[in-house]
Each structure stands twice: as C-alpha cells, then as structure tokens.
C-alpha cells in the first residue's frame, strides 16, 4: 500500500467514527513540527502512515516519535502510528484502525 491509499482508508474509518479529519495537517507544538497525514485538531486525534516513499522517516525521527508517545501517554493527544512495513493489506489496516478507535472509545476519549 502506498501513502495515499493508506491515508484514504484511515480517513474513511476516522470520519465514520465522528472525527473531522484534516489531511496533511501541520502540527507544531513544543519541539515537534511535522505534517500529519490526518488530524482532528479539536478532538486531538489523528493518524500518520509512515512510508519511505514521501520521506516520512526523516521527518518522524526516533526523537519525534518519542516526544509524541510521551504526550500520548499523558493523554494530551492520540495519533495512530502505522509503519508501512506492518501493513499487509487494506483489510488489515482497516481492522487495526477500528481497534484503535474502539480503545479510545472505551477510554472515554471518543463518543
């Protein structure tokens, strides 16, 4: 799957869950300055499909991911992080996205 196909699948799932996803959202907070593939700035929920094709690996460095994860542990925001190498097809990606959204719902971050 390429970046566009992956983002389309994720946007559909997140939108269906009631989120207002903005594609290619510039996220600039603290020391983090990246473009997210999809993000709802109001609910602070989104996703990033990391691919080599568009140079994500130089943008989402280990330090950036660590910073984002620290903030997710503090429940300040939630970003579904997908490495293209873990995705075997659109069904797998869609299943995982629904699992992520269900967990957020269980934890009260999504109605």
């Amino acid at each position: 799957m390429d970046e566009r196909q992956g983002s389309d699948v994720l946007t559909a799932c997140f939108t269906e869950a009631g989120l207002s996803i903005q594609r290619d959202y510039r996220f600039r907070e603290g020391g983090v300055n990246v473009v997210l593939d999809g993000f709802d700035p109001e609910r602070r929920i989104g996703f990033e499909f990391i691919t080599t094709e568009v140079g994500d690996r130089s943008e989402f460095t280990a330090a950036v991911v660590e910073e984002l994860e620290t903030r997710m542990c503090a429940e300040e925001l939630f970003l579904f992080l997908i490495d293209e190498r873990d995705v075997r097809g659109p069904e797998v990606l869609e299943g995982a996205a629904r699992g992520f959204l269900a967990l957020l719902r269980d934890r009260g971050h999504l109605t």
């Binding site: 997710m72 992080l81 873990d86 299943g95 992520f100």
Partner: peptide, 13 residues
C-alpha cells in the same frame, strides 16, 4: 508497545 502503534494490533491478532 503502545496501543497507538499498528504493530500492537498485529501482535494482538
């Protein structure tokens, strides 16, 4: 592994 990572769901499956 954080629940926000794709691999979390692959491991689960």
């Amino acid at each position: 592994t954080g629940f926000w990572r794709m691999s979390y769901y692959e491991d689960w499956k």
